[in-house]
Nucleic acid binder design. Structure first.
Lengths: 343, 343
DNA sequence: ACCGGCCCTGAATGCGCTTTCAGTAAGCGC
DNA sequence: GCGCTTACTGAAAGCGCATTCAGGGCCGGT
C-alpha cells in the first residue's frame, strides 16, 4: 500500500496523542510541558513529518524565500552578484528563488508576478533596466501593489527610474575614468564594443566614455562603435566586424569584461597581439580577467559586495521613507591588456 | 489610508458581482460566459489582483517551483549546469529555487528539507556527493518520504548510492582517457591537483587517472598529489605547494578546470611557462578555458546539456520504476596547455 | 480546606483558494 | 407548451497550519 502522500500535523498529533494545537506549539518551540514536547517531537521524527510551508504561510507565518531576478546566471557578472546575495540570504536562513530573464522584459515582469504570487518577502532585481519606458512602467505597475502590500524591493545596477532601494555601480564615472586612463596612455583613436542599446547600462557607460573623450577633444565616430550582445560571442563578433571594417583604433573599450574576453579571442584568432598591436579594456572586473594572458585592464566593481548590499537593503527596514541609494566601484585597474601607444 | 495588504479573490468577485467560485473559474480559464469572464478579468486588472500561490498550492493546484541545490553558483561549472536547468525550466514555465550549499552536507540536507516543505514538484541535486556514508544516509532519509509523496528527484554528477534518476559525467573514464592522452605526449612524471577527499568526484577522477597510469607502469606517489579546495585559489595554492616541494613533474593534472586556472596563474607568477616548462590539464571544459592563453587541455563535459537532461528527467514520468541513468562526456580535448615532452 | 490566579491544553476559527455538489435558467424535441 | 437534457452559477467544504478563546488542573495564599 502506498504511504500517505503527506504526513500532516494532525497525523503527528494523533500519534503523540495530543491535540493538533499542542503539536503545533511543540514543533514551534512555544511553552509546552517537556514530556509532551518530547512525545510530539518523537512522533514527528518517526513519521518523517515536514510541515507544509504553504499552509504555514497561509496561516500567517511569514515565509522565508526571497526572489532574485537577473539576466543570466551563466554570466560570471551575474553569478558573482548572485553569489553575494545568496551569501547574505544563507546567513539569514533564507531560501533564494533565482530566475534568469535572458534580457527579455516580458519574462522579467512575469517573474515578478510569480514572485508576488508566492508572497516572497523581498524581490531583488539584478541587472540593467530597459530604455523603453513602456517596460519600466509595466514593471512599476507590477511592483507598486507588491510594495503596498509590504513587500521589499531592492535593485542592483538598475536605472534610477524605479523608486526603490538601489545599489548602483558607477557606470558613468567609471567609464569616464577609463577614458582618462586610456588617454593618459596616449591613445587617441578608440573603438567601443557596445551592447544592446535598450539597456540603460549601455547608455551610461557609453555616454560617460564618450563625454570624457569629448572633453579631450577626441571624437567617437559611429563607425567606431559596434553593437553586439553582452556575451563572449557578441564581443568576438563585434571585434571581428571592427577588424574587417579596417578600424584604425589603437584601443578598444568593451562595455563588459565578458565582451572583452571575446574581443581578445578574436584578436588572437586574427594573429594580432594584445596589447602590442591593440589595447583592450573592459568593465566589471569579473574574477577571471586577472588570470587571462594578458590580464585585462578594466573598471573594477565589487561584484559580490553589490549583491550583499542589495540583500541587506532588502532585509533592513527603511524607516525614513526615502529610498536608499548606494553607489559603488568605478576604479580603473590597469593591467597588461593596455599599453602606451607606440611602446 | 493604507491599501489593503492583499487583494483577494473575494474582493475581485465582489467587485465583479459574481460568486467567488465563478471568479476562480474565470481566472483559470474554465468555461464561463464570456460576459462574466470579462467582468471578472476587468475587476482583477483594476484591483491589481495577484492570486496567492500558497493558498492555491494548499487547495490542490500543483505549483510550479522546482528546487535546485548546487555547491556554488559562483563556480562556472555549476553556473553552466544551472543555466541548462533554468533553460528547460523556463521553457516549461517553471520557476527555479536555487540554493548553494558551499559543500556543507548539513546545509544540503537543510535545503532539501525546506524544499520538501515547499512541496516543490521536483528537486535537483547538482554536484558531487560526499564519501561519508553518514551524510548520504541522512540525505536519503530526507529524500525517501519526498519521493513517496510523489516528488521527483534527479541528480547530476552524484554518486550512484542515491537511487534516483541520474546524469553522470564520465569522471572515471574521462580521467583515464586524459591519462592516456598525456602518456601519449610522452609524459612520465605527473602531479595531480586534487580536491576535498570527501567528494566522490575526487575519488572517481583521481582513481581513473591513477589506474590508467598504473597500467602503463607509471606510479603516482603521495607526494605528487596535493589536496586543495575546488577553487581558483585552491589550485593556485596547490600548484605553489608543488613547486616549493621541488616537484619534478612534467605535467600537472588538475581535477577541475577552475583549479587548473589557478595553477596556471601560480606558474605564471613563478615565471614558468605553460606548456614549455610544464603541461597543465584540467577537467570539465568550462566555457572560459578555450579563451585562456594557452587554451586549456581538458576533459570535456557538455555542462549545459547535463543540466537540461537532469531537468528533463525530473519532468518526465518514469513509468518503468527502474531509475534512469545517463552518462555523458569524458572526451579529451587537447589544447595549447599541454605539449609533448622535450619539444 | 477554600478560593483566586496562572499556566497549559484542546476545540474551533480562518488564512485564500480550488473543487465538488446542488440548484437554476436556458435550450431542445415532441 | 411540457418534460427533459445541457450549461453555467453559487454555496460550501476542506487543503494544513497558526492562533484565539475557554476550560481545567495545579499552585500559593489565607
Amino acid at each position: 500500500m502506498q504511504p500517505r502522500a503527506h504526513v500532516t500535523l494532525e497525523d503527528v498529533a494523533k500519534a503523540a496523542d495530543v491535540s493538533l494545537a499542542t503539536a503545533s506549539r511543540a514543533l514551534n518551540g512555544m511553552r509546552v510541558t517537556p514530556q509532551l514536547r518530547d512525545r510530539v517531537l518523537a512522533a514527528a521524527e518517526k513519521l518523517a513529518y515536514t510541515p507544509n510551508a504553504h499552509a504555514r504561510a497561509l496561516a500567517g507565518a511569514s515565509h522565508r524565500t526571497v526572489g532574485v531576478i537577473c539576466h543570466d546566471v551563466t554570466d560570471p557578472y551575474f553569478a558573482a552578484i548572485a553569489g553575494g546575495v545568496m551569501r547574505v540570504a544563507g546567513a539569514n536562513d533564507l531560501l533564494v528563488m533565482l530566475a534568469s530573464t535572458f534580457r527579455d522584459p516580458e519574462r522579467e515582469i512575469a517573474y515578478v508576478s510569480m514572485l508576488r504570487a508566492e508572497r516572497a518577502p523581498a524581490i531583488l532585481l539584478i541587472g540593467s533596466g530597459f530604455e523603453d519606458a513602456r517596460w519600466e512602467r509595466a514593471l512599476e505597475a507590477e511592483l507598486k501593489p507588491y510594495l503596498d502590500g509590504g513587500g521589499r524591493v531592492a535593485v542592483v545596477s538598475r536605472h534610477r527610474s524605479l523608486k526603490v532601494d538601489s545599489v548602483l555601480p558607477e557606470n558613468r564615472a567609471g567609464a569616464a575614468a577609463m577614458a582618462r586612463a586610456l588617454l593618459d596612455l596616449g591613445h587617441r583613436r578608440f573603438a567601443v564594443l557596445s551592447g544592446p542599446p535598450a539597456l540603460t547600462t549601455v547608455a551610461d557607460r557609453l555616454g560617460g566614455f564618450r563625454e570624457e573623450l569629448a572633453k579631450a577633444g577626441v571624437a567617437l565616430a559611429p563607425a567606431d562603435i559596434v553593437e553586439a550582445p553582452f556575451t563572449r560571442d557578441g564581443g568576438y563578433g563585434a571585434m571581428t566586424e571592427l577588424l574587417t571594417r579596417g578600424s584604425t583604433a589603437t584601443c578598444v573599450f568593451a562595455l563588459t569584461d565578458v565582451m572583452a574576453i571575446g574581443a581578445c579571442a578574436a584578436l588572437r584568432d586574427q594573429g594580432l597581439s594584445v596589447p602590442n598591436d591593440i589595447s583592450v579594456a573592459g568593465f566589471d572586473d569579473i574574477p577571471i580577467v586577472r588570470d587571462l594572458t594578458p590580464p585585462l585592464t578594466t573598471v573594477a566593481l565589487p561584484l559580490q559586495t553589490l549583491g550583499e548590499k542589495a540583500m541587506e537593503l532588502a532585509l533592513t527596514e527603511n524607516n525614513g521613507r526615502r529610498r536608499r541609494l548606494l553607489r559603488m566601484g568605478g576604479e580603473v585597474v590597469l593591467r597588461g591588456s593596455t599599453a602606451k601607444v607606440g611602446s
